[in-house]
């Protein structure tokens, strides 16, 4: 039982990171129906910005995270303007290929500039403490990751549900043409969506840096893929779905590693995804909308 609870704690921190990345995927998908494969790499850029903010500027972890979020928000907006906007009216697969291109570009421009070798997040940026509560080992960095992830999700939920911008985002995602007729600036709304999604990814990047201590130019690929799976699991395009999907993914992986065969972790994660898709093609929270003829 103790071991099980410990595994739950492990799974929740992993899930929080997946959920943060998945949110960006799902927001972008919700609004322009694009699988933004470069999203995981934005997370990587965020991690590097956080790293340099700490090592070169000597900032603390909160400032580093804010710096990364701002930098990546701008990066996300630029990416959308330069690469995705010209493709808004062409096929989705063309946009998908562009996303793959952007993903490779971000990865290898980082390799070219900073080298492929990993960088180590200074331990002094976040001194790790372990708390022992009733035999369970909980680390302050786990608490940090979990709390800041939940905090960001609450803020996001507030923006989407309570602000005008959020209303505009929901409107554009529901029906773009109608949103235009209502006087909503679609371009601006999409830009904001990219900015928020990328900022969340950047926050996740810095968290990964703190949590796992090392960052490298290719670090975005696998978490990006997993987060994408998490987004689909929850119902792509749905914000609460991405959060739940992220946590489900984190817990699932932890359970497979803890109680099953760790070698089949990825296969099980993908297997569950396929089963969910077959039973409920729109994900756990998706509504099955009938096809318009």
């Amino acid at each position: 039982m103790l071991e099980f609870l410990q595994q739950m704690i492990n799974g929740l921190s992993l899930g929080a990171i997946y959920a943060l990345i998945a949110l960006g995927y799902t927001m972008v998908y919700g609004i322009i129906k694009l699988i933004n494969f470069a999203h995981g790499d934005i997370m990587m850029v965020g991690a590097y910005v956080g790293f340099f903010s700490i090592t070169l500027l000597g900032t603390d972890i909160v400032v580093a995270m804010l710096a990364a979020m701002i930098f990546c928000a701008i990066l996300g907006v630029i990416m959308e303007k330069v690469a995705y906007r010209p493709l808004r009216n062409s096929t989705r697969i063309a946009a998908l290929i562009t996303a793959i291109g952007l993903s490779l570009f971000l990865e290898y421009i980082t390799v070219v500039i900073l080298g492929p070798t990993q960088k180590v997040f200074p331990a002094s940026a976040f001194p790790v403490k372990a708390y022992n509560i009733a035999g369970l080992s909980i680390l302050n960095k786990q608490v940090f990751v979990f709390v800041s992830a939940v905090l960001l999700m609450v803020i996001l939920q507030y923006i989407i549900k309570r602000t005008k911008t959020g209303k505009a985002m929901r409107a554009v995602s529901l029906d773009r043409e109608a949103a235009v007729l209502m006087g909503i600036s679609v371009d601006r709304t999409i830009s904001i969506t990219f900015a928020i999604g990328s900022a969340l990814a950047a926050a996740a990047g810095v968290m990964i840096g703190v949590y796992y201590q090392t960052i490298n130019p290719l670090m975005g690929i696998i978490p990006g893929l997993k987060a994408f799976v998490a987004a689909v699991l929850g119902g792509i395009g749905l914000v609460p779905g991405a959060m739940v999907g992220g946590f489900v993914m984190g817990l699932l992986e932890t359970l497979v590693m803890g109680y099953g065969n760790s070698l089949y972790r990825d296969a099980v994660a993908f297997g569950v995804l396929i089963i969910i898709l077959l039973i409920r093609p729109t994900g756990l929270f998706g509504k099955n909308t009938g096809e318009k003829v």
């Binding site: 699988i35 989705r92 070698l263 995804l273 396929i274 898709l277």
Partner: peptide
């Protein structure tokens, strides 16, 4: 047979998942 009932991006992710499963299985 099972996945082609899915459409668009769902099919894409399901086939991607199958491809990865094949790889993981071969690895083991």
């Amino acid at each position: 047979v099972p996945t082609l009932r899915l459409k668009g991006d769902y099919l894409a992710i399901a086939t991607l998942a199958f491809g990865e499963i094949i790889r993981v299985v071969l690895q083991n």
